[in-house]
Design a protein around this nucleic acid. Sequence first.
DNA 1: CGACCGTTTGAGATCCTTCAATACCAGTGG
DNA 2: CCACTGGTATTGAAGGATCTCAAACGGTCG
Lengths: 231, 231
Amino acid sequence: MQTIALSSTPQVQMSALSVCKGLSSQAVGRIAAISTLRKLAPREVLFMEGDEADHIYEIVSGMLRLYKLLPDGRRQIMGFPTAGHLLGLAPEGLHVYAAEAIGDVTLCCYPRSSFDRLVDNLPGLARRLWTVTSDELRFAQDQMLTLGRKSSLEKVASFLLALTDPNTESGKTIALPVTRGDMADYLGLTLETVSRALSRMRRDGVLDFPCVDRVRFLDLDRLEEIATGDE
Amino acid sequence: MQTIALSSTPQVQMSALSVCKGLSSQAVGRIAAISTLRKLAPREVLFMEGDEADHIYEIVSGMLRLYKLLPDGRRQIMGFPTAGHLLGLAPEGLHVYAAEAIGDVTLCCYPRSSFDRLVDNLPGLARRLWTVTSDELRFAQDQMLTLGRKSSLEKVASFLLALTDPNTESGKTIALPVTRGDMADYLGLTLETVSRALSRMRRDGVLDFPCVDRVRFLDLDRLEEIATGDE
DNA sequence: CGACCGTTTGAGATCCTTCAATACCAGTGG
DNA sequence: CCACTGGTATTGAAGGATCTCAAACGGTCG
């Protein structure tokens, strides 16, 4: 079984990684050969928009925020990738957004030049990357609908729903991994507006907050109606 | 030279098509073998969101609008693809947005099943598709910044700039291929707000309108400053 | 010419932002 | 232990940007 180590402490099984999904064990071995592990502290910046994209990263654990900035400092967060997501797949060689760790993060790193060679030589890897990128594109397009056409309440409801998985039911409590400010920059709102939307849904009995960083869903059907603007 | 015909009238040189870029002439031949041409009339719908994606399309000429709808009819336009763009690359088999012709459109069609086989068998095609999809993703992420964080004036300026090419200079006039309403649904605004933004930039001497569907750029530097929020 | 469609412009309403005050919590040092 | 601090969240009040509704304009086409 292929593994790689970071300073001999944590170990990662390569075949469990997202880049390797669907590839032969021989291919996995060749990917492992160019991998190294890396850790990020909270708020550590992995790369900035416009930086040379000399590595491709796969998140092993933790969460980051990806964002773009306008010259005056306005920020749009593109997403909050977690374990299994790939970062830095910028075909032109420059990062198109910044990436910053939210909490502690572990990454698997592939030097870009070696990775490029693998893409050409490993049948199946290019297709795998196409699938990954297509999924991201679909996600980005859903977000365009949210950003362009939904009200603040609908935006916040959509965000909370995106945190759930298929087997989340009313009554369940989940972690809210990001601050109000991050939610706001993700949804194109201010943090006050996000806070008001959350308060309103609590008042309306749709959800509740055991503490600031947890949500308890009380009425998921209603939440879904709010998110899609149904009524 | 590989060509395909529609009812014996128009002919298309396969090697000029975007799917084929960078592929061997043998590969081009195999792509040509599964191609057919199709024409769309203005306002004709190619597919709706949620439809089975049984074909992949490459635009030969004309322009379409791609959009998503909310249940109550709010519309977000994802883009206005033109010649060379690929449509229907939905890896899960369902279209994730609707596609509708704006004017007359000619398409090159590939049945999905045959196309999928080619992706597996033609080395280079998967990578080509990855590149195409990555470009679209980058584009979508730029649009997320515009939708989430820019003012109406900045949005309209950004849209107009996206219509220019690198050698457009102040003084040049270009076609405005879409209505105010389409611009609005693309930028997350109302058509009135778009109209007011255009009027204001005309008042300020940034641009002018010989007629409703043409723009003359008078001060491209200023337009760029407006688009990025610089000042 | 009249009907129609897209555009422009105005006036008022609405939603979201801005600014400000307060609350809350964890960490720190006296 | 507790006061102090900094970061985050909540809530209120006022302002502003965009939307809504409405009227008028201009070009195209039968």
